[in-house]
């Protein structure tokens, strides 16, 4: 794995902080989209541009994660006319601190996992874990359903980073399946979002609370 990968992964981790620290839903979507596009490009870089299938997959990833899904989310945003995340369950500064703690824990935990020789010294694993943790934080601390979808995307990006180290291990068919599933999942979530907005006149998931013990 080339040395060029680590700086990109640092950028990905910074984008985690960006998405957790901003109150504008638009910015969260853009941050996550940029993250996805960067990772798709990275996949091509890691694998080299000699073979057609990995290139195809990289392009597809950039298209789906960087363009198609963010477009769906932005359209949903326009339709429901929200701009800001109001009063997240955990405020921005504490959630940034939580993200920092999660990232630190990821680095600590990753030290216990021995790397394969070709990845020695790389921050691949901690970056993956940190992004998964950040995605989980977005899902669990934000109230707007649309921000939660962005959080889910971020979590998927983290899993994708882990997949970067395993490009030769995961067959093409499965990669395509994963990407397709992600696309359809967001699509279905988008439809449900639309109905949530129509039914509750809001995308605030705090209103989704009639089903409680």
């Amino acid at each position: 794995m080339s040395r060029a990968v680590d700086p990109v992964l640092v950028l990905v981790i910074l984008l985690n902080f960006f998405a957790l620290g901003t109150s504008r839903v638009h910015a969260v979507i853009n941050g996550v989209a940029l993250q996805g596009a960067v990772l798709g490009a990275l996949a091509m870089l890691v694998h080299g541009v000699h073979e057609p299938l990995p290139v195809l997959l990289g392009v597809a990833t950039v298209l789906v994660k960087g363009i198609a899904i963010p477009m769906m989310l932005r359209r949903a945003m326009r339709e429901v006319a929200i701009r800001r995340e109001v009063e997240p369950y955990i405020d921005y500064v504490p959630s940034l601190l939580a993200c920092a703690a999660g990232t630190a824990m990821s680095f600590l935990f990753a030290q216990r996992l021995p790397l394969a020789p070709q990845h020695a010294g790389s921050i691949l694993v901690p970056a993956a874990l940190a992004t998964v943790v950040s995605g989980f934080l977005v899902i669990s601390t934000r109230r707007k359903a649309i921000t939660q979808v962005a959080g889910y995307l971020m979590l998927e990006n983290g899993v994708f980073i882990m997949g970067l180290g395993l490009l030769e291990a995961i067959p093409f068919l499965v990669e395509v399946g994963v990407l397709l599933d992600l696309f359809v999942a967001i699509f279905v979530m988008g439809i449900i979002l639309y109905h949530v907005n129509r039914e509750f006149a809001s995308l605030d998931t705090a209103r989704l609370s009639s089903l409680k013990e």
Binding site: I139, Y152, V188, M189, I192, H195, S210, L211
Partner: peptide, 14 residues
């Protein structure tokens, strides 16, 4: 197709 089933579906999906 009511509010409660919508809430359930959202939680299930997420």
């Amino acid at each position: 197709r009511n509010a409660r089933s919508l809430e359930a579906t959202w939680k299930y999906l997420l």
